[in-house]
Design a protein around this nucleic acid. Structure first.
Lengths: 181, 181
DNA sequence: GTGTACTTACCTATCGATAGATAGATAGCT
DNA sequence: AGCTATCTATCTATCGATAGGTAAGTACAC
């Protein structure tokens, strides 16, 4: 299948990402991934020799896709408020529709136990996201800082997840948007 | 040693809490705890038969101590601003002095992979903390909601931890305090 | 066009390490 | 004697990882 968008390698990353977002790095095993994909664990090692390789690949793909869906932070056809709305909506949809947190929020919380290459990739994600957010809100007077925005959203996901009350995410997200006017 | 504040059981909880806050539930093992305390893993099982028992005990002790240090949310001798400052300072001190996140933030992020009694204890912690915060800010006009406050602080810890920039926590904490005037 | 060399993508089988957990013995205290 | 706290020793299950093999596809010389 030339040009196929569907490879076993992608399947592995899909399953690994979903599982990591649901329970963290250690809750993912080669065997479980293999069983769900329909191959053997040795075949997962073929694509990703070490678990850290898999972890880095999952984080990097997540980061790329995420920033891609956010679009350009300086698109003149869009207001800071609209850009903030889009980042909120991205997180909200995942949380409500699939019950999944931000991958890097989950991994960031257990950062101390991760292989260094993985935790570095997580750090890079946040650096990129902070940068995007700062640009997206540039020029706004009463706007919260990028760190405030990202902190609020990440924390709201944890809170909603831990209490089983997804509405708590909305509460924080809408307060954020209200502050931008 | 009657009345001693120092028992092996406490030692076990101390070590388990520190490790869980550094790397999550799965990063803690009976063997590692035992080695650090100076006993055998079977002895840890004597005090906490199952790992979930240990997890619940760690979370409950953490929750009790935490709410204790926060004090009464309706102490008339204190302003909402002062109460907010104290909750910020509690988290800041742990993060800066020991590099440790809030236990329930770490566990809340991987909530989906925890034994149910443990994730329920984590949920109870946040319910109690939300309640304390709502009471602490009661009557304030321009004050952020309890969910906003807790979200911001939890998220700021994750962000600071993942990026290795503890200053990012302060940035969010001080913005929070500024909003209370 | 076909033999040879190489690559890709899996497989079976197994390794050593470590996880949580348990049974039964021991030592000291009341 | 009985209780508490710890030990030694061991179990089963699972982990990440590796070795070695197989079948199918690709590339190229002749």
């Amino acid at each position: 299948m030339i040009g196929s968008t569907h490879s076993k390698s992608d399947d592995i990353l899909d399953v690994a990402e979903t599982r990591m977002r649901g329970g963290g790095y250690d809750s993912v095993s080669f065997r479980d991934i293999a069983a769900e994909v329909g191959i053997k664990s040795a075949s997962v090692h073929y694509h990703f020799p070490q678990k850290a390789d898999l972890g880095v690949a999952v984080v990097q793909r997540y980061a790329e896709r995420f920033l891609e869906t956010l679009g350009a932070p300086d698109d003149p056809g869009e207001s800071p408020s609209e850009r903030l709305a889009r980042i909120c909506e991205g997180y909200r949809a995942a949380l409500f529709d699939q019950g999944l947190l931000c991958l890097c929020c989950v991994l960031g919380a257990e950062s101390g136990a991760l292989p260094k290459p993985v935790s570095e990739a997580v750090g890079d994600f946040f650096a990129g996201l902070l940068d995007w957010t700062a640009r997206a809100l540039e020029g706004e007077e009463r706007a919260p800082s990028a760190a405030e925005v990202i902190s609020a959203l990440q924390g709201a996901m944890v809170l909603a997840n831990a209490t089983g009350r997804p509405a708590l995410f909305n509460q924080t997200a809408e307060a954020l948007r209200a502050r931008l006017g």
